[in-house]
Design a protein around this nucleic acid. Structure first.
Lengths: 350, 350
DNA sequence: ACTTTGGCTGTTACCGCTAACATATCGCAT
DNA sequence: ATGCGATATGTTAGCGGTAACAGCCAAAGT
């Protein structure tokens, strides 16, 4: 009834607060909705005169196209889901930078989801994202819940698992081998003559990459007939402060320790500041190393030994895969391994 | 033609890679699409038996609802646009945490856009976001391009401008007065007896909040008959390192300086490390202060004076406004001022 | 003059889901 | 039985765009 009336008598006072549609622009400019659509998307041939007219109308009305409708009709969504564990350490923002850089001129747009290292949260974030039918998904790590794995496999879009390649990806993967990274660091430390080595790191049960680094590290120690002398874990709080506290704890408990291997640069920096403050000879009496190569370290009084995680490059490569910028083997399923370089800094003796 | 055929003969071998729709679940479970829809959204009465049947079917098929279609049909989108300048300093991630916390149990989901402090980029990010018809927008700062202002005003959804309240918001605002913050810091510094004060900060022409802090700061200096003795700006690079370098530059150029006011904690920390390294008496010979209250500072050898920017709280309050969790004055247009507290730390003498 | 061509614009039928309403079903008081 | 309310399920008509195709018309070809 209501509608029937409407169909005959146009609503005389169109609610000014109602959101605009193509029809409004179409009426304002005297062409069909289709033509307006074409103008606004720069698609198909439209005469210059019409184009001007339409753009002017759209501008003056303040029309913002409805991508929801557009996406539904065209079955195309210019969104790329990016699922990462955290934003509060320096590592993922840098990955994001790499992703954005590449996506910038592809018309694709990253949408970030944060999981706080929780597999369940990851699963639900993923579900939420997939329900918006993105053009691709970039997700940190190779470990996911079974359901998440299934969703990724079923999604029918390119999936890139990033950061880590020690495992089997669902589709494509870009990252480094954390096991190898741990191993290499251990080898360098041993080569420098340190023998009483301690590990200090996060306790988070789901930080698989830190775990793998430690595994690789211990593996290499074992091969040299060594074992960790001590270990200390933390969770939450200011990483810099934790590094300081843990270092004190370890050095008090195990005075024979001559090397401290940290699972990330931030706690490593805390440890370094502590040692310097205590007047400990670094790297003579004690050596230190972290992981990541965060920019922050450049400002420290002494450069912490670390290993670059190739974060920017990982972001770039992952985005390139999603954007289809590569020798198209339609199947996907590409694994790109990057190789971090060891930076000895000033905290491992030569 | 093609379609006519389809209408009669169901496609016999449904492409296994085609994405599933409600219809698939409906057929698999023998009820109407509408009932499936109801089950999956927990809306309306559905018998327990049917519910089970449907959920089982959906699960076994691996069905993921299409929110695009859902949003279009229901005219409801559970997304909140969050537009911020950067992710690579600690401040916005913390705001995000506050936002996520509150949104968590409202069914709303934050979607982040990053502008890199570029007004044009902000405008286009905003346009992009609005085209997805979010339920609300949280955007950093009060300064936007004219077009962006217009879009925000027209959008017909709650808008919250955050971080800053020195200006006129489009709708609601949650933040602190950076002018007042600068003023208060100056007053504390003067009260402590420092007289030869230098400013070290970012050069970014669009960091309006840093600018306002400096304005407030100088205002208070002027009131006490003082003026900045020196100033130094930077852009890009590792903030910690820049802080170190700038500090060296200033102290070399203006040896009479007895206080260094930094526009953020990160460069302040760099300056502090430099001074300690040089054996300068802090806060006796030279005092230092930053801004933000970042967690990082807890790990420093000495606590830098700073002023908390209430980031977490800002995020929370903004999200609450969007979520409608407050004495509903439908009009919106609420301004919430938060008051940062001065933390003198160990770098301003008593 | 009569097609042909190609540029420009309009028409139609959906995209996958949900609001609103219609209908069926059942138990139970009357 | 009859009617009624409450519960459970189905039907219809879009949401606001776009793909695909159809139509129109002036310039060009023969």
């Amino acid at each position: 009834m209501h509608r029937a009336v409407l169909a005959v008598t146009k609503p005389p006072i169109p609610d000014p607060r109602r959101t605009l549609t193509l029809r409004d622009v179409s009426e304002a400019s005297g062409v069909s909705e289709m033509t307006v659509s074409r103008v606004l998307r720069n698609r198909g041939d439209v005469s210059e005169a019409t184009r001007e007219k339409v753009l002017e109308a759209a501008r003056s009305l303040g029309y913002v196209p409805n991508k929801i409708a557009g996406a539904l009709a065209s079955q195309r969504v210019n969104l790329v889901g990016v699922i990462i564990p955290s934003l509060s350490n320096m590592v993922f923002p840098e990955v994001m930078t790499g992703i954005s850089e590449v996506l910038e001129d592809t018309g694709l747009q990253p949408v970030v989801g944060v999981t706080n290292y929780s597999p369940d949260r990851e699963e639900s974030v993923l579900y939420e994202m997939l329900s918006w039918r993105p053009s691709g998904v970039i997700i940190a790590g190779l470990e996911h819940t079974e359901a998440a794995q299934a969703m990724l496999a079923q999604a029918g879009i390119p999936i890139v698992e990033i950061m880590d390649i020690d495992g089997t990806p669902v589709d494509s993967a870009v990252g480094i081998s954390h096991r190898r990274a741990g191993r290499k660091m251990a080898e360098a430390i041993i080569a420098a003559g340190y023998r009483n080595i301690a590990f200090l790191g996060t306790m988070m049960p789901y930080d698989h990459r830190a775990r793998k680094r430690l595994e690789g590290f211990e593996e290499a120690l074992a091969k040299a007939g060594l074992a960790l002398v001590d270990r200390e874990f933390y969770s939450g709080g200011s990483a810099l402060l934790k590094g300081r506290e843990m270092t004190e704890a370890v050095l008090t408990r195990s005075p024979q320790v001559d090397f401290l291997y940290y699972s990330n640069d931030m706690i490593g920096a805390g440890g370094l500041l502590y040692c310097l403050h205590k007047g400990i000879d670094v790297p003579g009496r004690i050596g230190l190393a972290g992981f990541n190569g965060v920019e922050l370290l450049d400002g420290l009084p002494r450069k912490l030994a670390t290993m670059d995680a190739c974060r920017l490059e990982i972001g770039r490569r992952a985005a390139e895969i999603i954007a289809g910028k590569r020798p198209n083997g339609v199947v996907g399923g590409e694994v790109i391994e990057l190789f971090p370089t060891l930076q000895k800094g000033d905290t491992i003796r030569d």
